[in-house]
Nucleic acid binder design. Structure first.
Lengths: 358, 358
DNA sequence: CCTAAAATTGTTATCGATATCATCTTGCCG
DNA sequence: CGGCAAGATGATATCGATAACAATTTTAGG
């Protein structure tokens, strides 16, 4: 026996690169590698006694399981890939949290990727992910490059598209109609007496959810006989707070009598409100402004922002749950659509009677 | 030849699970698997002609490289693990972006994990990551469980700790002194005439950067002979906007004559300012408030918030760069410390003369 | 036109864990 | 006490790509 290499000094440094394998742990304990492998799984049949001895050895030697070897032979990579547009967006991070929570104790890990609202980047990421053979994949939105779509189909794993309702789903869908949600907001505000509607959103079609919100706005304004909406496009999605501020300036220059402005997200709405405040306009007294997404900031800032609350967390949770279903039922599940909720949250920024307090 | 399974219908659906291997692509093209493998790498010697034919076949068959097999034999997993406290924090997402950018064209992918400010969760994540054999690992902060530390050392891969200066670094460090940064802010404001300092931060020691900022505040206030600071602890880190608002209420109840309040982050500062505004206090006329981190919101909101700007992106970029260095030099590099910059950004929220405009 | 060097391609062993089947205990029941 | 089922463990083949080396073809130079 020659294993006097247990680190004993307090300040440990890397460098003594290990090359510890399961076989060595096995030899150390006096069992076969197979038994060590079994000890790492809860369902396998190993006597408690043996498992304990193995785990002690694992601890003493500092062995860490090698999944890359394991997944090759078991043909199970043990992870789910999820692609979201942006890392720094509380809506998507709530969704990611929902997914992580739903995957607790399933033995599956979540691997996140960021597409930056670009289908090209999404395609690259999808390929990078598929190369590691995920057991399922969750996407945001329903717009993908043709090649991405082909790869996803070929992969033969469950796919869940989220956050919207694609016309031609690949597989499963968990989301809601961004267009109808925005329409609901328009109708709600119209019923409060607002007539002259403006809209602020990003410039391109890259952000499909943004485009859907825009078209929901446009359609509804016209349906209500309030003429074509006053639309300002500003900045590449995701539109920033600052761009929201710039956009409202353009909008009010062009249509000074606008009564209420809907924004593609709370962040741009916030930027717009702050810019108005800075220019001496009171919100909602001089102009009403609403957002979309119910970010934390909207319930904190002054005035608080009217918005659409989306069940971000639920989207993530259900997407993961649907994926698990598909994995368990041997992916024979049909292509289901799971609708998630949203609701209008009326706050000070569109309050008809009130100047905001203070 | 029997390969009439090319998908031709427009609406592709998964289900026809593939089991396509490199060998089959090779057979299809009429070369060996090894040549196909070579075709996938830019440096390998394959004739352009052959590579083209192989890539066409790959495209036609829809083959996707299997890295789990490849990394087993090449002993290179092709990814770097990075652990950050929170997914939804623009400071850390900037850092993540810096890392991603620095890893462009290195053939290495970034894998992010979220510790939720918990060393226990960090330990779990470190183990989960190590099981996939990353080629390097980037951590946020210098506090880790003993077991986490042991695993990291044992792993024999480069480790970079970021965002602070640990007393006992594992390996490399890229960061700055949170304590000194906060001290600088205190001194700057003191030089403007402020005397009665308050501080708002989270309750526990979990957020080590928060603790360091707090101690930097405390120490400096005392050094300047301004008595012990007025400290309010509120909420489990990461402290939210809402908790910032609640905290400032407590603070002003207890010490109504406070002149300036420093907050552990811009987000709590924002919450505090909004709460003051709502209660009819003007910032900075009635009370000055500053944050930390220079989040986007601080330059947009009204009044704009004085803060410490941290080179978040640079931290990420340099952390990844140091890691690459270590990988190239055969990890013989000493344990270097790379200092990153920070600076005070004075804005309206602590403006001595001015009530904010409007 | 011949030879050495360079470029291209192929063959075989291997990475480290796990599926699968075989073997060996143990315990229980009639 | 025989026999059989359930439980524990081991032996071996295998997952799919790549390293390492071997073989072959092409190119360049004299």
């Amino acid at each position: 026996m020659k294993n006097e290499d247990e680190p004993k000094d307090k300040r440990l440094k890397p460098g003594d690169a290990q090359k510890l394998t399961m076989a060595e742990v096995a030899k150390y304990v006096g069992v076969s590698a197979m038994t060590v492998s079994r000890a790492f799984r809860q369902d396998a049949s190993v006597s408690e006694e043996t498992r304990k001895r193995i785990m002690e050895a694992v601890d003493a030697l500092g062995y860490v399981l090698d999944l890359s070897a394991g997944s090759l032979s078991s043909r199970r990579s043990g992870f789910i890939a999820a692609l979201v547009p942006s890392i720094n967006n509380s809506n998507f991070s709530d969704t990611a949290r929902g997914m992580t929570d739903a995957l607790q104790n399933t033995g599956l890990q979540l691997l996140l990727g960021y597409t930056d609202y670009s289908t090209e980047k999404e395609e690259e990421l999808i390929e990078a992910m598929l190369r590691r053979r995920p057991e399922g994949i969750i996407l945001t939105g329903g717009s993908h490059t043709a090649r991405a779509r082909r790869m996803l189909v070929k992969a033969g794993i469950p796919v869940v598209e989220t956050w919207e309702l694609p016309e031609d789903p690949i597989n499963q869908v968990v989301g809601f109609s961004n267009s109808e949600a925005m329409a609901l907001l328009v109708r709600t505000l119209a019923s409060q007496g607002y007539r002259k509607f403006g809209y602020i959103g990003g410039t391109t079609a890259r952000d499909t959810r943004g485009s859907q919100r825009r078209s929901g706005f446009q359609k509804t304004v016209e349906e209500l006989g309030l003429g074509p909406g006053r639309m300002i496009s500003f900045g590449v999605p995701p539109i920033t707070m600052e761009q929201g501020g710039q956009a409202i300036v353009s909008l009010l220059e062009r249509w000074p009598d606008t009564e209420v402005v809907l924004c593609v997200s709370d962040l741009s709405a916030f930027g717009a409100i702050m810019e108005c405040t800075r220019r001496g306009m009171k919100v909602p007294r001089d102009i009403a402004i609403a957002g979309f997404g119910d970010y934390e900031i909207s319930s904190i800032c002054h005035p608080r922002i009217t918005t659409i609350n989306v069940d971000c967390y639920g989207i993530g949770r259900q997407a993961a749950a649907r994926l698990m279903d598909a994995l368990h039922t041997g992916e024979a599940t049909g292509d289901e659509i799971t609708l998630t909720g949203y609701k209008v949250v009326l706050r000070e920024s569109t309050d008809r009677n009130g100047a905001p307090t203070a």
